[in-house]
Write a protein that binds this DNA or RNA. Structure first.
Lengths: 203, 203
DNA sequence: CTGAAATTTCAGAAGTTTCTGAAATCACGA
DNA sequence: TCGTGATTTCAGAAACTTCTGAAATTTCAG
């Protein structure tokens, strides 16, 4: 490996983490290298920089493309493909979230739906389905929140994040107002329409 | 494998997904089995149900314990260990989020910090550090949002989720108000003081 | 068309992870 | 103390993934 020390440390770290993120070491390294590189790189340069075989680079770039994590660039009068990453980190985050959802969540959600449609044969089945339903409903809450939030422009998304849990003060205020009209426990579903419930103490 | 068909489908699916979630097939299967099982199970029963070796069960349970995803139970006059999962799915989600953060995010954040402290040797280093800083800052926004949100009681967390992106109406109002006094784009930090105003335009 | 450069594919070598059965260890009652 | 049964450990077998170099394919200028 033939890179400036700072870049090298970053690249090696991403390589090690690759495994935990669902890609292999080389894919992680290539991504890291492209991410910090000031210019797009061609396959040969990547192979050279990381000290790995040209064919390994080719396969790993394919995988990065399957993840939508790299961009192709061309340079006039040079027919090689040059690769780079999007430079907006928030865009990168969106792509990553989308891809991970597609791989890690969606298949499970669809299996859960399928199994919940089956007619239970006995009490064991009924119990199992009740558990699957709990999991299904939680995942639905999460993905519908996600679908909603991903539509936000980045600026707003950042604002929303920095607001953090302060948002709940909003809910508390709503609560207090709402309780005058409607005395007691309601299903918590559509809080936005003003029918939250219970829970005093809020500071 | 010797399980009711519905449970078996669920278990097999979790086994397949295991790889994508950073655990191996057996770990995924055991987790799924414990999750749907109405009673805690002992190692022998798990091995029997899944048709795998006793030692494999032992090692996989260890891993699930390292992830804090299983609970130990004891039955009077029986010295075997019985295992189960927490039954609140939201608690499971919290544990999972925490563990994944610990494994997938924290190490990277600390490497980024370390590399950002180094004195750059040239322009290439300066450019690389600028990129690392962008990544670092984004991850910090995310983790500080997460740290904030994870303190919420589940009931409030669910309410927050179902609110989704509607929360940004709150931000819009704040924007408008703020702009009277202060002509331009401000960091959107302390919105919490503008509370009660929001949300009349709902629907 | 031909040929040179870039890229991809692929069989199998190298490396890694997962799984097992056998042996070691532990926990407890008699 | 010992014996019984539960549990863990561990060396190596089996399965799987990653990586390479060689060969095949693509691309494009002349």
């Amino acid at each position: 490996m033939n890179l400036p020390p700072l870049v090298q440390s970053f690249v090696l770290h991403f390589g090690e983490m690759g495994g935990r993120w669902g890609v292999n070491r080389t894919v992680g390294q290539i991504y890291a290298l492209l991410y910090v590189s000031p210019e797009p790189l061609c396959a040969e340069e990547i192979a050279e920089g990381l000290g790995i075989s040209r064919s390994n680079v080719s396969m790993s770039l394919r995988e990065l493309q399957a993840w939508n994590l790299v961009l192709l660039r061309h340079i006039p009068d040079d027919r090689r493909d040059y690769y780079t990453t999007p430079d907006d980190v928030w865009l990168i985050l969106r792509v990553l979230a989308e891809e991970r959802k597609k791989r890690e969540i969606d298949p499970t959600l669809s299996v859960l739906r399928e199994l919940l449609l089956q007619t239970p044969r006995d009490d064991a089945d009924r119990h199992a389905q009740a558990r699957l339903a709990e999991m299904h409903d939680m995942i639905e809450s999460l993905t519908s929140w996600y679908d909603d939030v991903k539509k936000l422009e980045t600026e707003r998304l950042v604002a929303l994040l920095s607001l953090g849990a302060k948002v709940t003060r909003f809910l508390e205020v709503k609560d207090r107002i709402t309780r005058f009209g409607r005395p007691r426990k309601e299903p918590l579903q559509d809080v936005s329409k003003a029918e939250a419930k219970t829970e005093e103490g809020g500071g």
